[in-house]
């Protein structure tokens, strides 16, 4: 990533705004940009979703492959999440091997989905020790205007929820919907102008400090946490955003449920 030129001026501006509890685009502290979520938008993927939050746009696609189960887990299939931020998504994303930022993105999204246990890898086994399904979730950024984390997580779980196992194509029975027992959702908070805000835009990311990502399951259980970038936070600050995340993650879950039922 190239070195951003504006941060110091932007930082000061964001701090001035924060003093009056304002944000650069007029939103409230815990107000998200409007989210649109569509599923079934990629004809070649077995499950897919598109998420738009302001000018941030991402896609997620699910593909299936046959695998030989690992010798130490003969009764299990596999789940793999991979995030790619290619240079199409913004001026600051440069070509070349995956940057540490995009690897972190993929791994945090992966942990939220994996650790929630929403996909039972035992159910992916076809013949123990011989054949199993490998589910591959690819999340892909089209346009990065900040908070790719939440967009990726939302598109990812929606794509999985909409996925159909292509058994017919592999000549092992009839197609069936991929069983997904939970709907983990992620909320990200960035420190901007000294306090945490929800769903930071690109400008807020550039002129902000550390960020915290929280993934919660259906019952409010915590499945993944990540603190990123340089910064110090207190227990009180964390408690405040966790309290907010419980409410927000459940709203995001309703959004996924509505998109799937449509």
């Amino acid at each position: 990533m190239s070195i951003p030129l504006v941060p110091e001026l932007l930082r000061k501006h964001l701090a001035d705004l924060a003093e009056s509890d304002l944000r650069i685009d007029g939103r409230g502290r815990f107000e998200s940009r409007e989210i649109s979520l569509e599923v079934g938008i990629l004809p070649r993927a077995e499950g897919s979703a598109r998420v738009q939050m302001g000018n941030t746009i991402v896609l997620a696609g699910v593909k299936f492959q046959l695998m030989t189960p690992y010798p130490d887990r003969p009764n299990q299939g596999g789940l793999m999440c991979s995030a790619e931020v290619r240079p199409v998504a913004g001026r600051s994303w440069e070509p070349g091997p995956p940057s540490p930022q995009s690897i972190e993105l993929g791994r945090v999204v992966d942990r939220g989905i994996r650790e929630s246990g929403c996909i039972d890898v035992d159910e992916l086994c076809i013949i123990p020790g011989e054949r199993a399904w490998q589910v591959i979730l690819d999340v892909f950024a089209i346009s990065d205007d900040g908070n790719l984390f939440d967009a990726f997580a939302l598109a990812g779980i929606a794509a999985l929820r909409s996925a159909i196992v292509p058994a017919e194509r592999f000549e092992i029975g009839e197609d069936y919907p991929l069983p997904v027992s939970k709907t983990p959702t992620m909320c990200s908070y960035h420190r901007v102008g000294g306090r945490y805000v929800l769903d930071a835009s690109k400008k807020e990311e550039l002129g902000g400090d550390e960020r915290i990502h929280i993934t919660l399951g259906d019952d409010g259980h915590v499945h993944s946490l990540q603190k990123g970038l340089k910064g110090i936070f207190t227990t009180d600050e964390f408690e405040e955003i966790m309290e907010h995340a419980i409410e927000r993650c459940s709203e995001l879950r309703d959004l996924v449920n509505n998109a799937i039922e449509k």
Partner: peptide, 16 residues
Amino acid sequence: VRYNMAPFSTTDRIRP
């Protein structure tokens, strides 16, 4: 100029 196919753009997944 870069041309790239997304992993989910074809019947068989394309490795990034």
